[in-house]
Amino acid sequence: MRRLVMWDIDYTLLRGGGVASRAWKAAFTEVTGVPWRDEPIFGGRTDLDICGGVFASHGVTDCAPETFFARYVELVGAVRHKFAEQGALMPGVREVLSHLGDRPDVVQTLVTGNVPEVAVMKVTAFGLAGSFDVEVGGYGTDDSVRATLVRRSLERARAKYGELFRPVVIGDTVNDVTAALANDAAAIAVATGATPAEELIAAGAHVVLPDLTDLEAAIKALTG
C-alpha cells in the first residue's frame, strides 16, 4: 500500500512573509466596507473557519465567503511574486521533497488551511509545485474543520488512483496533529512554527522533528 504524504504549507514547507495575510485584510475591507480591527490566529486553521470568525467579530452578516475568497485570490495573485522575495523555504524541505518524489511508493499532496488557488501560488513561488499532486489535496474551502480536509484528500486520492493509501500528515501545529489522528493517519510534526515540540508531543504526534534538515530522520518518519 502506497503512502499519501499530506503536507501542510505555512511554517511546515515555507513561510510566506505575510503576503497572504496582508491580502486577506485588504480583501476583507474591500468586500465588506468594514475597517479591519481584528487579528485572528491563522496557524493550523482553515480559511473557511477563519473567515467565519472574522466576519462575526466585525459584525458582518451579509457577505458570502465565496465573494470574499474570490477577491482575496485576486489580490494574492497580483503580488504572488512577493512570496519568494519576502518569505523563505523551511530548512531541509527541498531535499525531502526531492527524495520522496523519486519513490514509487509515495504520492505527495497538500493538506492546508489555504484556499486551493493560494496554496498553489505559494508552492509555485518556490518552485515546488511539481512535487505535489494538487488534485488530491485538502484545502481551506473544503470545510471549516481541519480533520475533514484530511478525509477529503484521502477520498480524492482513492478516486483518482483507484487504490487505498496509508495516510501521513506532516504539519507544525496541534490542529495538524489532531486532524491526522482523527483519520488514523501517521501524525508527523515539525517544530518550525509557533508551537513548541512539547505541545506537539502532548497532542499525540507520532514523531516530532525540530526541522527537516536531517534527511534520514525525516524520510524515516514519513515512510517508516
Rank of each mutant, 00 (worst) to 15 (best):
M1G: 06
M6Y: 04
W7L: 08
I9W: 04
Y11V: 05
Y11R: 12
L13T: 12
R15I: 09
G16T: 13
G16H: 03
G18M: 09
V19M: 05
A20M: 08
A20R: 10
A20H: 14
S21I: 13
R22K: 13
A23K: 03
A26V: 07
A26M: 09
T29W: 07
T32P: 04
T32R: 11
G33F: 11
G33V: 08
R37M: 04
E39Q: 06
I41V: 14
F42W: 15
R45P: 03
L48Y: 07
G53W: 08
V54L: 11
V54Y: 10
V54A: 11
S57M: 06
T61G: 01
D62T: 05
A64N: 02
T67K: 07
T67G: 00
F69V: 00
A70E: 05
A70F: 02
Y72T: 02
Y72F: 15
V73C: 02
V76L: 04
V76C: 13
G77V: 00
G77L: 00
A78R: 15
K82D: 12
G87Y: 07
G87T: 06
M90C: 07
R94L: 10
D102Y: 00
R103V: 00
V107K: 15
V107D: 01
L110V: 03
V111E: 01
G113E: 02
G113M: 08
V115H: 01
V120T: 03
V123D: 10
G127I: 04
G130H: 13
D133M: 05
E135L: 10
E135R: 15
V136W: 06
G138F: 08
Y139P: 01
T141D: 08
D142C: 12
D143I: 04
D143K: 10
R146L: 09
T148F: 02
E155F: 00
R156G: 07
A157V: 00
A157C: 00
R158E: 15
R158S: 14
R158I: 00
Y161L: 02
G162E: 11
G162R: 15
E163C: 08
F165H: 13
F165V: 04
V168N: 12
V168C: 07
D172N: 15
N175Q: 14
V177Y: 04
A179V: 09
A180P: 10
L181V: 04
L181D: 01
A182R: 14
D184V: 03
D184Y: 07
A185Q: 09
A185R: 15
A187G: 12
A189S: 11
A191R: 01
A194D: 01
T195L: 14
P196H: 03
E199K: 15
A202D: 08
G204A: 10
V208Q: 08
L209S: 07
L212V: 07
I219M: 13
A221N: 09
T223V: 05
G224K: 13
G224N: 06
